[in-house]
Each structure stands twice: as C-alpha cells, then as structure tokens.
Computed example of a mutant assay.
Amino acid sequence: MTRQHGQGAKGPSQRQLRVGELVRKELSDILTRGEIADPELDGIIVTIPEVRMTPDLRLASCLFMPLGGGDGEKIEKALNRCAKYLRGLVSRRMTMKYSPDLRFVLDTRFDDDDRIESLLHSPGVSRDLETDTDGDDGQD
C-alpha cells in the first residue's frame, strides 16, 4: 500500500496546516503594516483568510480578499508582481529550511456562496423541491 501525499482523501497534513497558518499570519502582518511600496496597492486593505501549502512546503497558494470591494484581478496581479519581495520578508520572519514561493489567488468563496444561495431560492429550484417533498418518494 502506498502512502498518499497532499490533499487526497485525507486532506492536508497537520504540518501543512501549521506552516500555512504561520505564512498567513506573517503575510497579514506585512500587508497591514504597509511594507509594500506598490502604487496599485496604496490605500487598499487586503485580508489573507487562508494559505494552502503543497506537501513539500515549497509553494504557498495565498487566498486574498480586498476589503471594501475593489478590482480583485488588478490587486491579484500587483500581489503576484510583489511575490518575490514578500517571500523575502516572510522568510526573514520564519525559521524554515526553504522559504515557500508565494502565489496569490483571489478568494471567491463568499461570492460563490451567494450565487449558490440565490440559485437555491430561485423559483425553478424551489418548485422542484416542493414536488419532491409532496410526491411519493418511492419507498414503502
């Protein structure tokens, strides 16, 4: 039997979760203090809700959300442009053998939740749900 690595059936390991949380905390601190001198990020508050690490801890996918709205794609490009600089700042604050490469991805989970919620309350879906509960379910 071979051992599965990564986010297979078991999900991320405790080490991945711990390192991801450390990277998230340091990135949040760096972004809060405004240590990036990028004109596209001036005056924009960015939150990092989650960092997902690969099993070898060499790549960190950093989910971010701009607070108060804003152009997420523009901010994503700016953060990815500053990724090497941010990697250097994070590596100075953490004691790891290798500093992970950072990739920033816009977190759309809340938008997806709103979209699914509106779909579930649409007339077509509610009609289908009513017919399933009113009709015979085929079991005796």
Score class of each variant (00 low, 15 high):
54 T>S: 15
98 Y>V: 13
134 D>A: 09
76 E>K: 14
27 L>T: 08
115 R>F: 00
75 I>N: 04
9 A>C: 01
125 V>D: 00
94 M>N: 13
10 K>V: 00
50 E>G: 01
59 L>Y: 06
35 E>Q: 15
131 T>I: 10
25 K>R: 15
121 H>D: 05
18 R>D: 08
28 S>K: 12
65 M>L: 11
139 Q>S: 08
71 D>M: 11
76 E>S: 12
12 P>S: 13
139 Q>N: 03
12 P>K: 13
9 A>I: 03
98 Y>D: 10
26 E>M: 10
4 Q>P: 01
92 R>D: 13
121 H>W: 03
126 S>Y: 01
109 R>N: 01
22 L>I: 05
4 Q>G: 03
94 M>Q: 15
135 G>P: 01
78 A>D: 11
73 E>Y: 14
123 P>E: 13
27 L>W: 10
76 E>G: 05
72 G>F: 08
42 D>H: 10
89 L>I: 08
49 P>Y: 10
109 R>I: 01
79 L>A: 08
114 D>W: 00
46 V>M: 07
45 I>A: 14
69 G>F: 06
43 G>L: 11
55 P>D: 15
41 L>Y: 12
70 G>D: 10
46 V>I: 15
82 C>V: 02
33 R>W: 03
119 L>K: 02
126 S>N: 01
3 R>W: 10
102 L>P: 00
61 S>A: 10
48 I>D: 04
121 H>L: 06
131 T>F: 02
76 E>N: 04
43 G>W: 13
8 G>H: 03
34 G>P: 07
77 K>D: 11
29 D>W: 12
80 N>I: 01
46 V>T: 11
24 R>Y: 08
14 Q>D: 14
99 S>H: 06
40 E>P: 00
19 V>S: 14
87 R>I: 07
63 L>T: 00
87 R>A: 05
26 E>P: 02
108 T>Q: 08
124 G>N: 07
70 G>P: 04
69 G>D: 08
130 E>L: 11
116 I>A: 04
31 L>G: 05
108 T>G: 01
119 L>C: 00
97 K>N: 14
120 L>G: 00
91 S>M: 14
113 D>M: 05
1 M>I: 01
110 F>Q: 04
28 S>N: 09
35 E>L: 15
23 V>R: 13
89 L>G: 09
48 I>L: 09
54 T>G: 03
98 Y>M: 15
72 G>K: 05
17 L>R: 15
49 P>N: 06
108 T>W: 02
53 M>L: 15
29 D>C: 06
106 L>A: 02
54 T>C: 04
98 Y>N: 08
122 S>F: 02
43 G>I: 11
107 D>S: 00
39 P>C: 09
59 L>K: 04
56 D>V: 09
119 L>P: 00
3 R>G: 12
102 L>M: 09
56 D>Y: 05
40 E>Y: 08
106 L>E: 03
55 P>G: 07
55 P>C: 09
91 S>N: 14
74 K>Y: 05
111 D>Y: 02
12 P>R: 15
99 S>L: 12
138 G>C: 03
140 D>Y: 01
66 P>S: 06
115 R>E: 03
134 D>P: 00
26 E>S: 11
14 Q>N: 13
68 G>L: 13
26 E>V: 15
30 I>K: 14
101 D>F: 07
111 D>M: 03
135 G>V: 02
39 P>W: 13
92 R>Y: 11
85 Y>V: 04
